[in-house]
């Protein structure tokens, strides 16, 4: 595929949108301005950006508890996201979902998910619907390395393979299942070996490089769309913040040195260097993009803070399909 300047810039914007929104959300959480749990995606932006840029808008994705990045990379709206994080009526879920359940069906984003691994079977269903209706779309499930120790993942992988469904499995292998290092929780190191076990191809790519992810995802997507059944792309990545929040817990499950070492491979820095070296963008124009997006982020904070909390009546609405109290 030809990776044009437009694609390179688009990848950058997608990553910056995730990064700046999440850094802001992290600051708000630290200053106790956001309720609930916040699982930040910072460090893993190349995966969401690379994969979403390779998809059609209508291709469905299912996400994880660390789901802001997926929705933002697919074009999610800052205002509605920030409002949802604050539990406001103007949020994506009318303030009833929060960070872990953020979704946008218009963007074919079928929801972040508070249950590890639970989005994978749902993506199987979307893939099934795509094939049955012949709409030419594929579904993508993002999941972490830890999710692949859960039964739902295995059932879904086997079913997608057995039914030969148009589905792309994206493993975001950040080496930690919450606070447990990967080697303590599984006896294999590469999750794609699990794809092989169910009879479909898997490949590993550098998940800190958006171009590598984009290219690899594009190759897989083309094959999946042409009816070759499911595939798995394992993106070796890393989260810069803790499992929850910014500072997280005080436990020593990983060293500061390790985190600092990985930050040298910051997907934004990697891509910025490439854009400048290849003459696609100057440092100034990169900064201009960041400034612009930061303004949008700032506006979203304003929007969210000025938005009302939901009325109490909202609590009983949407339990069932009609907007009537349950």
């Amino acid at each position: 595929m030809d990776i044009t300047d437009e694609i390179l810039i688009d990848l950058y914007k997608r990553m910056v949108r995730v990064r700046l929104f999440e850094e802001e959300a992290g600051r708000l959480a630290e200053s106790a301005r956001l309720p609930g749990f916040l699982h930040l995606y910072v460090g893993e932006e190349a995966v969401a950006a690379g994969v979403c840029a390779a998809l059609k808008n209508e291709d469905q994705i299912t996400s994880t508890h660390r789901g802001h990045g997926h929705l933002l990379a697919k074009g999610g709206d800052f205002n509605r996201m920030m409002a949802e994080l604050m539990g406001k009526a103007t949020g994506y879920c009318n303030g009833k979902g929060g960070s872990m359940h953020i979704c946008d069906l218009d963007l074919a984003m079928l929801g972040a998910n508070g249950i590890v691994g639970a989005g994978v079977p749902i993506a199987v269903g979307a893939a099934f619907a795509n094939r049955l209706t012949g709409n030419g779309l594929i579904s993508v499930s993002f999941f972490g390395d830890g999710a692949t120790n859960i039964g739902a993942f295995h059932e879904a992988a086997n079913m997608a393979a057995a039914l030969s469904l148009p589905m792309l499995f994206i493993c975001e292998n950040n080496e930690y299942a919450e606070y447990s290092p990967r080697h303590r929780t599984m006896a294999i190191t590469d999750v794609i070996e699990r794809a092989a076990a169910y009879g479909f191809p898997g490949a590993i790519v550098d998940g800190m490089d958006c171009v590598a992810v984009f290219e690899a995802a594009s190759l897989a997507i083309e094959k999946i769309r042409s009816g070759e059944g499911p595939m798995m792309l394992e993106c070796k990545t890393y989260r810069f913040y803790d499992h929850v929040g910014v500072k997280g817990t005080a436990s020593n499950y990983r060293t500061d040195e390790e985190v600092e070492e990985m930050k040298k491979r910051d997907p934004l820095l990697v891509h910025e260097a490439r854009l400048i070296e290849s003459g696609v963008m100057s440092a100034d124009s990169l900064q201009a993009i960041k400034d612009e997006i930061q303004k949008e982020v700032d506006k979203s904070v304003e929007f969210a803070e000025e938005s009302p909390f939901p009325e109490v009546e909202e609590m009983l609405l949407d339990v069932y399909s009609k907007r009537e109290p349950s």
Binding site: L105, P121, N130, L132, M159, A162
Partner: peptide
Amino acid sequence: EDRVVDTPIAEQAIIGLGIGAAVQGL
């Protein structure tokens, strides 16, 4: 076989299949 689908013995994935397809309008 496309509309009357034999699945693996996989209850979570069977329900997930239904959910994902239902959200898609089936």
